[in-house]
Every structure is written in C-alpha cells, then in structure tokens.
C-alpha cells in the first residue's frame, strides 16, 4: 500500500482503475485542490492552471492502471501535473518567447524575518505570478521539485548556465518583490 494513501484514497484509486465514473468524479474532487495548487505555481492564470489540471487528470485516468502502490500516490500525481505544466509552457514558449530586461542587482535586499515568516501561500503565489515565465519555471523546478540544473536544462531546452542564471535572478526578483509588496512586518499587519 502507498505510504501516503488513506483507505478512502485507495478505494478511489481502485475504483478509477475499474473505470467507474462515480469514483473518477470523487477522485477528481478529492485531488483537485492538490493538483490546482501545483498548477498555479507554474501557470498563475486561473484558466491556464485549470487546463493543466484537467489535462493532468485525463492522463491520470488513462494511466492509473500503471501506478504501483510502491511509491507515494501524491508524488506520482505531482509528477504528472508538473510534466503537464511543462508541456503547456513549452507550447506557449513556441508561440512567444519573452525576455526579461532585468539584470543582476548586486545590491542586497534587506527583508525582516518577520515579514518572511508571515507570508501566506496566497502571497507566495502572487509573488510567483510577478516573475517572468522562465524564471518561475526554473525556480519551481529547482527549489520546490528538487530538479537539478541539468534536468531543468533538458526539460526547458536551455543551457545549464542559463538555468543557473535564471535561478539566481528569480531569487533576486522574489526578494525585491517581497520588499516592494510587504515593506515591513508592522505596516502589513498593523496598518
């Protein structure tokens, strides 16, 4: 049995394997929030994220027979959502590739620890929304999913050095954005 699966989730997975529409519906509604949170990190526009989620679930229902309970189910699902998000990104990049005019800012940005610790998930998603697409992709894949620069370079069709540069710039930009939108702890929470 998958280490992270509750008996209810296991029942849903078994039902989906049999192709039961009722179980598929319950499965979709149960894991929707989890998949949507991942999709929004890569595609902040709600509609795009919705497409990623739906495409991911279509893949899940097609391939759920291949899932073995040896690995964590959420990890398996996460991989499908991330790969689908990357597919959508690659499609979009083909249509238009935007370059960010930002350059490396050597000046350090000072942020209070209290401000950082008070950032909610919604705040973070909002901050990620302000990052250029390729920065956001590299940041998510490296810092959150744990991909290496080589893997990112392969996935996004970049050079390894570009991936490194984008990561550094993404971090810089995030820090600046935090400073800009949440100047200090007191102003934010005690206006």
């Amino acid at each position: 049995m998958a280490p992270d699966c509750t008996p209810f989730e296991r029942q849903l997975i078994e039902g989906c394997r049999k192709g039961s529409p009722q179980h598929q519906e319950m499965f979709y509604k149960h894991f929707y929030g989890f998949a949507m949170a991942i999709a929004l990190r890569y595609h902040p526009a709600r509609q795009d994220a919705g497409s990623v989620v739906n495409d991911s679930f279509m893949k899940v229902f097609d391939r759920i027979g291949r899932y073995s309970f040896d690995e964590t189910f959420k990890g398996w699902l996460r991989r499908i959502v991330v790969n689908t998000a990357l597919d959508h990104y690659r499609k979009r990049v083909k249509q238009s590739y935007s370059t960010d005019p930002d350059h490396l800012d050597s000046q350090a940005v000072l942020i209070e620890d209290a401000v950082i610790s008070q950032l909610t998930a919604e705040d973070i998603l909002k901050l990620l929304e302000h990052l250029p697409d390729h920065y956001r992709m590299v940041f998510n894949l490296y810092e959150i999913e744990g991909y290496s620069h080589e893997e990112i370079a392969r996935q996004l069709n970049l050079s390894v050095s570009s991936s490194r540069v984008y990561l550094v710039r993404a971090k810089e930009k995030l820090a600046r954005l935090v400073k800009r939108y949440f100047p200090n702890h007191d102003e934010r929470f005690y206006p």
Binding site: Y32, G33, F34, M36, A37, L40, R41, A108, V109, L110, I111, D113, I116, S117, L119, T120, A121, I124, L125, E143, I144, K171, L174, A175, V178
Partner: peptide, 19 residues
C-alpha cells in the same frame, strides 16, 4: 535572506491545497 525566504516558500507551498 534567500535561504530563509526559500525555506519558508517550500514549507508553505508544499502543503498548500485549494478548495
């Protein structure tokens, strides 16, 4: 600062789910 910020992002986002 970056370490703290990224550590917080990982922790917050990792367990985040939408309704």
């Amino acid at each position: 600062i970056h370490k703290k910020l990224i550590g917080h992002i990982r922790k917050t986002i990792g367990s985040y789910e939408l309704p």
